[in-house]
């Protein structure tokens, strides 16, 4: 494209953005809101996926032993598990130690256990560390079959639960994103339609004197892209701020939740938002121009 043509396109775009400033403002706002929601779901889903992955990679199995098993039986069991393939270590936790740990974890809410009196409902258990995450499931299943073992648990329940929630969030997010994308597309294409309408005579003359479709299309396309991009920038700024605040809150209260660090994650999210914004903008103007360029 020639330099004079690029200048022409940029100038026309600026004029048109100014002429429809209120409509442009509304478009940027809608794009910003939609992209903000998109970014939120993106962050949520990525973080939940990460949490699932980190739980899955936990290589520890808690083995609960039946109360009637004798000390020698426990010792035999320990021996048996230690000799299994893939087992790194086995640590015996008797019920007293388990209770002590539990009390420690409750902290200042220990009074909850007062009603139990002297009874200890916790079983004796082993903490079995496995060499590789992919061996955990089979190991847990084998151990659960052994006589004297009540249950062998690893993160599976939590993982499956989290999977369900993630799937739901993803589905809901997709549906919401679709609706918002439609709304955004609608408002952008309407904004551009106003511009096209204001300049329909000019477009007609351009066609009579032999302007190509692309020459006519560019200023409008650029207008849509600029609207989308500005909306994306607003959304990204708000989102980054929000993530910082929320992340700080989560570290304070839910320290175990492995939230992704800001960088480079937020850069990727920002890039995704800007690209989506520009794409929606370009698509919106293409839609409004289609009818005008056909004849």
């Amino acid at each position: 494209m020639k330099i004079s043509t690029s200048e022409y396109i940029v100038r026309e775009t600026m004029i048109s953005l100014k002429r429809n400033s209120w409509m442009s403002f509304a478009s940027i706002g809608t794009v910003a809101v939609s992209l903000f929601v998109l970014g939120m779901f993106l962050i949520l889903v990525v973080n939940m996926n990460r949490m699932v992955a980190s739980l899955e990679s936990q290589v520890e199995i808690s083995v609960y032993i039946r109360d009637e098993v004798s000390d020698s039986g426990i010792h035999a069991l320990e021996e048996r598990i230690t000799q299994m393939q893939g087992v790194e270590s086995v640590k015996y936790i008797d019920r007293e130690t388990a209770m002590k740990r539990f009390r420690e974890r409750l902290g200042d809410q220990q009074f909850l256990l007062d009603s139990l009196g002297e009874t200890n409902p916790l079983p004796n258990s082993f903490e079995v560390r496995i060499l590789r995450p992919d061996m955990v499931r089979t190991a847990a299943e084998t151990i659960a079959e052994m006589p004297g073992v009540e249950t062998a648990k690893y993160g599976q329940d939590v993982v499956e639960h989290l999977f369900d929630i993630t799937r739901l969030v993803r589905l809901f997010g997709l549906a919401l994103m679709f609706v918002l994308a439609m709304a955004t597309l609608f408002i952008i294409s309407n904004t551009i339609r106003l511009t096209v309408f204001a300049r329909r005579k000019e477009i007609a003359i351009m066609k009579y004197v032999g302007a190509t479709d692309w020459f006519i299309r560019w200023p409008f396309l650029l207008e849509g892209i600029v609207l989308g991009c500005l909306g994306g920038i607003v959304a990204a700024i708000v989102l980054r701020g929000a993530y910082r605040v929320i992340a700080a809150k989560i570290y304070d209260t839910l320290a175990f939740f492995p939230l992704l660090p800001e960088n480079p994650f937020l850069h990727y999210v920002t890039a995704a938002i800007l690209i989506c914004g520009m794409f929606v903008g370009a698509l919106g103007s293409t839609i409004s121009l289609k009818k005008f360029l056909k004849a």
Partner: peptide, 11 residues
């Protein structure tokens, strides 16, 4: 000039 601009004639 518009008629020449839109067919990308040199300035």
């Amino acid at each position: 000039a518009f008629a020449m601009q839109v067919i990308e004639a040199p300035r």
